[in-house]
């Protein structure tokens, strides 16, 4: 399978409740919580598009869009 290339992290700030699960379990530490306890992609250049954050998000608030999508 071709290596996935990141287009963007689409984060729905209205839906995010700031539980921090995606931040903690991201294997490349791409995500962070901001001062409002909402997730932001702080280091998108490190993302390997594993989409674990998307699958683990309890609020369906994060989507990893790739060039291949």
């Amino acid at each position: 399978m071709a290596k996935l290339k990141l287009r963007a992290h689409v984060i729905n700030r209205e839906w995010c409740k700031g539980c921090g699960i995606c931040v903690h379990f991201c294997p490349r530490k791409v995500l962070e919580l901001d001062e409002f306890d909402k997730v932001v992609a702080a280091r998108p250049q490190d993302c390997v598009c594993c989409k674990l954050c998307e699958l683990r998000c309890s609020d369906l608030a994060i989507e990893v869009q790739t060039e291949q999508d």
């Binding site: 839906w15 409740k17 539980c19 998000c57 309890s58 609020d59 369906l60």
Partner: peptide, 16 residues
Amino acid sequence: FPHMWCPGCGHGIVLN
């Protein structure tokens, strides 16, 4: 949405 489950509730992950 946003749903009524608490932050970090596993039910949302099951839905996903």
